[in-house]
Design a protein around this nucleic acid. Sequence first.
DNA 1: CCGCACATGTAAAGCGTTACATGATTGC
DNA 2: GCAATCATGTAACGCTTTACATGTGCGG
Lengths: 182, 182
Amino acid sequence: MATRSKLQFIILGLLAQENRTGYDLTQAFTDEIGEFWQAGHSQIYPLLARMQEQGLIDYERTVAGTKLEKKLYHITPAGRSALSTWIATPTPELAASKDEFVLKLYFIDSASDSRLPGMLREQLNVHIEKIAHLEMRRQLLFGSEAERQAHFGHFLILDHALQRERDYKQWLEGALRMIEKA
Amino acid sequence: MATRSKLQFIILGLLAQENRTGYDLTQAFTDEIGEFWQAGHSQIYPLLARMQEQGLIDYERTVAGTKLEKKLYHITPAGRSALSTWIATPTPELAASKDEFVLKLYFIDSASDSRLPGMLREQLNVHIEKIAHLEMRRQLLFGSEAERQAHFGHFLILDHALQRERDYKQWLEGALRMIEKA
DNA sequence: CCGCACATGTAAAGCGTTACATGATTGC
DNA sequence: GCAATCATGTAACGCTTTACATGTGCGG
């Protein structure tokens, strides 16, 4: 029964919001939900074809200009049903975080390892930039109370991402303090 | 050049600590580092063979009882060098977190969605249990200052995992308060 | 007319999970 | 003797990334 990828549900969710082309969906993984999930067009187009065969989605051809064909996909009732079922299904357990930096730390035994300060500071910069980026997006998307109400789930997870990054930053700063004392 | 999986470096790191069989390595992904990374034996055995061909590791056959062969792997100088290079390489960017629960939230638009309270509470339980588990491990592995000093990196990341889970819990509690007010 | 964005695909290679498959050792 | 654990592999399938491949539309 394999991994039953979440990608198809993301696509269903995005198509439930509005009709989109494969290209639009690809863009969404950069702009909208790149924070939470990633996928390239070479994964999306074949999956769209399979989902259409399964009746979860369908498309109509439209033409831009004189020749350029677009397939504008929309969700079917069966697709809506599958999406709804997925959302209602308990989320059993979270996978390991697979954070490469954390993994590297695992193999450093001594607090006085000469590589540690550089590694921690470099990572600190990465997260400081991430925080700035998330704060900007939060302001942009959810500056007003009305927008929070209209996309409450999105607001929640953006808020969560921001908290997580701030926590990560604090942890790195704490680690730096620990090794400085030693 | 493909993804250049991190798994091989984990194996190098584990073999740098002590010599192990494929079976031992598999166990390590349950006991020791299951918190941070996962891998099954069917991924490990073929990779060990490839790494041995590349000269990163080697093994000697040993026999338990009268017949049962074990391959006891050890890291080679080339393997140590590869491990060291990997650790020293800047960690460019973290992948998206791929948290399925967060993904589901993204598709919930309204704070009054009837599924929200149940989803949040269920997830809260998951994380409360995780916190308890991590606190136990922290106590078990790093109850004494000496143990923190001997495996500083491991201590740091366990501490980080714990902080992350506490943060997650607080976020869920905050979300629950928000929807109760509405 | 040039470059960038729009638009859609396929191919190759490796990663990762689940299932299939086999056999020995140890403790009860 | 039987079960749990030790021990090592292969196969099938799907996911994911990178690269290959092609062509249109639009604005300057």
